[in-house]
Write a protein that binds this DNA or RNA. Structure first.
Length: 478
RNA sequence: CCGGGUGUAGCCCAGUUGGUAGGGCGCCACAUUUGGGAUGUGGAAGCCGCGCGUUCGAGUCGCGCCACUCGGACCA
């Protein structure tokens, strides 16, 4: 009976992947719905995951010379309109403040959908000389975009993120920055979130409003759909011209600086869920898990058990492990299911039989393996097991990506593979947006990116037959 | 924005020709339990999504609205 009840609260992902995702978000106590559509409450456990990601990224940003700032929440309409491509991209999903107190405002104010314009306005005030450059800024905040369809983490009207904005004297320096930050995202995804990524360039059609180039890291979810997990943009001097940001260079002539921006949002948590989760719930990579080890006393009423379990918690804490003990009066079975649902990477059981043998039993969340651990090896074995889980999750995700990436040489072939197997499909491409649209119409896929790691699959574009320029990854995206 | 579904206790839901609201889970207390979601006894908990209408009387019928949800369209 217990075996069946174990997953009764979560829909199987094979039955309904979208419902499974929502179930995990709610049952693992990551989010709650608020009174407004698309605005979600991040509960303590969900927010703790974000804090861990935040800590990792913030450290990397600071190591590379960036400083945190805080920009205003509201953007005057006139400011938002200064760069025409940018406003065209964002105006349709802006929310506006039109009244302050009881007064109608002389100019309506947009609740920031992103802060490029605010940074630019500020820089136009403070940047004068080459000595003022580069400006390497970042802010942690939330932004608002009035989306029509919303889902926890994946698409909210408000979401938490960081947005980096930098200003450089030269194009080369700005382009270097753009790629440096993309690599920081890629490294964070792969080595902390255990999510393998495809690094690449967005097509003209898919790039950010106002950008010269948009770089992206694309991840594959368990259902073989793509998730754009982080983006980094090179703006050229377009914004600088629009906002009249100039500096006097060493040669005593006036120049427009070159700008970048880059962002990663709480959407990545949706990515973690859909990359590692299973039918028992969430599975968290140890490096970002709020609780890495849950210690469960078995038959805790028996003399000495609870006390010894407490000792394990204390010892692991001292060894630098994020550990918790569950000493509630719920049954062991309930606790197993509960902490599995919450994705804790390692469970440590301690019962009377273990005490007799001077051991505890570690159980891996990723594969269910039960491993007896001698108590005197606790401080070395448990961290090593956490590393194993981390690696195990990455390898599994890597296999999913590799096994569901297919080359195709004709539009028909691409369409068939997408319809029958899903995943990423790589083809050559002539570079014409018309062929990109054709792929969307006929095969239902958008271009995910032009990968840095190029391959020569053929000589012609599979859509129009003209000479191919580069290889593109296609997929169905979240 | 278009189409479908759903709104009744914290959650899932039942509620007959219209007659004044019920079950399971959860929660609280106590007892017995404890190596894969324990059992018993007792208890608390409801603007039946909102508004208008029909009626002696509306959870139930009609109209309008709102919210959530699933598809689709749209979407750096």
């Amino acid at each position: 009976m217990a075996k069946d009840k174990k997953v009764e609260q979560i829909t199987d992902m094979e039955v309904d992947f979208a419902q499974w995702f929502t179930d995990v978000c709610i049952k693992a106590e990551l989010v709650d719905y608020s009174g407004v559509k698309g605005l979600f409450i991040l509960r303590p456990y969900g927010y703790a995951i974000w804090e861990n990601i935040q800590r990792i990224l913030d450290e990397k940003f600071k190591e590379t010379g960036h400083e945190n700032v805080s920009m205003p929440l509201l953007i005057p309409e006139s400011l938002l309109q200064k760069e025409k491509d940018h406003v065209k991209g964002f105006a349709p999903e802006c929310a506006w403040v039109t009244v302050g107190g009881s007064e109608e405002l002389p100019e309506r104010l947009s609740i920031r959908p992103t802060s490029e314009t605010l940074f630019c306005e500020h820089w136009s005030h403070v940047v004068h000389s080459w000595r003022d450059l580069p400006c390497l800024y970042n802010q942690w905040c939330s932004v608002l975009r009035w989306e029509k369809t919303t889902r926890p983490f994946l698409r909210g009207r408000e979401f938490l993120w960081q947005e980096g904005h930098t200003l450089h004297a030269t194009e080369a320096e700005a382009r270097e920055e753009t790629l440096r930050m993309l690599e920081i995202y890629a490294d964070t995804c792969e080595n902390y979130l255990a999510m393998p990524v495809i690094r690449g360039n967005k097509t003209e059609k898919e790039k950010f409003a106002g950008a010269v180039n948009t770089y992206t890291i694309e991840c594959m979810m368990h259902d073989h759909k793509a998730l754009q997990s982080g983006t980094s943009h090179y703006f050229g001097d377009g914004f600088a011209r629009a906002f009249d940001i100039t500096f006097t260079d060493k040669d005593n002539t006036l120049h427009y600086p070159h700008e970048t921006s880059w962002g990663l949002s709480t959407r990545i948590i949706g990515g973690i869920i859909m990359t590692h989760g299973d039918n028992s719930g969430l599975v968290l990579p140890p490096r970002i898990a709020p609780v890495q080890v849950i210690v469960l006393p078995i038959a805790a009423h028996k003399p000495g058990v609870a006390e010894r379990a407490e000792t394990l918690v204390t010892r692991l804490k001292a060894a630098g492990v994020r550990v918790k003990g569950d000493f509630s009066d719920n049954s062991p079975g309930w606790k197993f299911a509960n902490w599995e649902m919450k994705g804790v990477p390692l469970r440590v059981e301690l019962g009377p039989k273990d005490i007799e043998n001077d051991q505890c039993v570690a159980v891996r969340r990723d594969n269910g393996e039960k491993i007896p651990v001698p108590l005197d090896e606790l401080e070395t074995r448990i961290p090593a097991l956490l590393d194993d889980v981390q690696q195990g999750l990455f390898d599994k995700a890597r296999r999913n990506l590799d096994e569901h990436t297919y080359p195709a040489h004709t539009l028909e072939e691409a369409k068939t593979i997408q319809a029958e197997r899903g995943g990423f499909i790589k083809t050559m491409w002539c570079g014409d947006p018309a062929c990109e649209l054709e792929m969307k119409d006929k095969a239902g896929m958008s271009s995910r990116c032009i990968p840095f790691a190029q391959e020569r699959l053929g000589d012609v574009c599979p859509v129009c037959g003209r000479p191919a320029r580069e290889m593109v990854y296609w997929g169905v995206a979240y």
